[in-house]
Amino acid sequence: MDIGAQLLQAGNLMLTGMVGVFVFLSILIFAMRLLANFAAQFKEVAPSTTRSKTTRATSSQGVPQAHIAAISAAVAAYRKNN
C-alpha cells in the first residue's frame, strides 16, 4: 500500500470519527434539552408547598476546636519526622 492510499484511508477514518462524535454530541444535547423541558413542565404541575419562614441558627464557628487541635498536632508530628 503506498503512502497516498494510507493518507486517504487516514483522512477517511478521521472524517468518519469526527462525524460520529458530532452526531453523538448533537443527540446528547437534544436529549438534555428535552429532559430539561420535561422536568420544567413536571415542576410546574407539582403542587407548591408553602413553608413558614423560619431561620435556622447556623454555626458561625465553622470547624470544631477539637478538629483544629488534631490537625495541628498531625502537622507538627509530620514536620518533626521530616
Rank of each mutant, 00 (worst) to 15 (best):
I3Q: 12
A5T: 04
Q6E: 14
L7K: 06
L7T: 06
L8Q: 11
L8R: 09
L8H: 08
A10D: 02
N12A: 12
N12H: 07
M14S: 14
M14Q: 13
L15G: 06
G17H: 01
M18R: 06
M18L: 10
G20T: 05
V21H: 03
I27P: 01
I27F: 06
I29W: 02
A31C: 07
A31F: 00
L34M: 14
L35E: 08
F38G: 12
A39P: 00
A40E: 03
Q41A: 13
Q41F: 06
Q41E: 08
K43F: 02
K43E: 09
E44W: 00
A46M: 06
P47K: 00
P47W: 00
P47Q: 05
S48M: 07
T50P: 00
R51I: 09
S52G: 08
T54M: 07
T55E: 12
R56C: 11
A57N: 15
S60H: 04
P64I: 01
P64V: 03
P64E: 01
Q65I: 07
Q65D: 02
H67D: 13
I68V: 10
A69N: 09
S72F: 00
A74C: 05
A76R: 03
A77C: 10
Y78D: 08
Y78P: 00
R79K: 03
N82S: 05
